[in-house]
């Protein structure tokens, strides 16, 4: 008895402590970024001024003056929203087919789709740039960024939706068939209402992934379709890094998504748990 009581007291204290420690480790870079964004570029690289410095808003003022933050932000919103939408428009029917009319290949197809995420992006950098720039002339267009973001997120989208749809009893879909539903009717009347929570989680996560994506958005855009990731990247001046300025830009870039994530915490956690939390 004593031992049981002890272990449970131990775990009551130990686990939350561990969680806090891990949480703080993850949070620290963000905290440091926000902190640095209020320092001058000179203060930012001065180790003596790690925590004691005179805060300034200069970096933020510069940002809107010099780089047109809002254009990059608008681009980020546009490409993230449309890439998410298209991924769902393709992903929902795809996951529906896999969940309710599986064939022997379904599991393999799912694995294969996921395996494309293991392909190193750098491996296709040259063909992608060459083809989009010189062959299709799509370089630095919204369309291209949306297409690429949509495609790289599709495996996750299909996989997530598939796990949600699979939880819906097949009987209910069949009852719908008996009652006169068409395939589209099944999706609209049964699938979407029943898996709504899962679809929203998937959408949120995809949106966040799109917003944060940097590899392709940086490399496939220059001005017109450039997103906030590109803005951050663009602040790496050749003569060295302006840490204060960079931090302000970064804070402004990740700010919206952190706020979004904060408000949708619950939905996101259940989403990442892949339907396990219900």
């Amino acid at each position: 008895m004593a031992i049981v009581a002890q272990t449970s007291r131990f775990s009551r204290i130990a686990w939350p402590t561990l969680a806090w420690v891990v949480g703080l480790i993850f949070f620290f870079p963000i905290f440091y970024m926000v902190l640095t964004s209020f320092k001058t570029d000179a203060d930012a690289v001065n180790p003596d001024m790690l925590f004691s410095f005179t805060p300034t808003l200069e970096n933020y003022a510069n940002m809107t003056d010099n780089y047109d933050y809002w254009r990059f932000a608008t681009n980020s919103v546009i490409v993230s929203v449309f890439a998410t939408l298209f991924a769902l428009v393709v992903g929902v029917p795809c996951a529906y087919a896999m969940a309710f009319n599986p064939s022997r290949a379904t599991k393999d197809v799912l694995m294969w789709m996921l395996s494309t995420k293991m392909l190193p992006a750098a491996a296709v950098l040259y063909p992608m740039t060459f083809l989009t720039k010189n062959v299709f002339g799509l370089f630095d267009t919204h369309f291209l960024v949306i297409l690429v973001l949509c495609l790289i997120n599709l495996p996750i989208v299909v996989w997530m939706l598939f796990t949600y749809f699979k939880d819906i009893p097949k009987d209910i879909i069949e009852a719908g068939k008996m009652d006169g539903l068409t395939t589209w009717g099944e999706v609209k009347e049964i699938l979407i209402p029943l898996a709504w929570g899962g679809i929203v989680s998937t959408a949120l996560l995809t949106f966040i992934f799109c917003w944060n994506e940097a590899y392709w958005t940086v490399r496939l855009t220059t001005i017109d379709a450039a997103t906030l990731s590109k803005l951050i990247e663009g602040n790496r001046a050749p003569e060295g890094l302006f840490f204060g300025r960079l931090s302000a830009v970064s804070t402004a870039a990740v700010g919206p998504i952190i706020v979004l994530g904060w408000f949708c915490q619950k939905q996101l956690v259940s989403g990442v748990a892949f339907g396990a939390v219900k």
Partner: peptide
């Protein structure tokens, strides 16, 4: 159906 298969929503 054995499971009733009602529309839960």
């Amino acid at each position: 159906f054995q499971s009733y298969a009602l529309y839960p929503h």
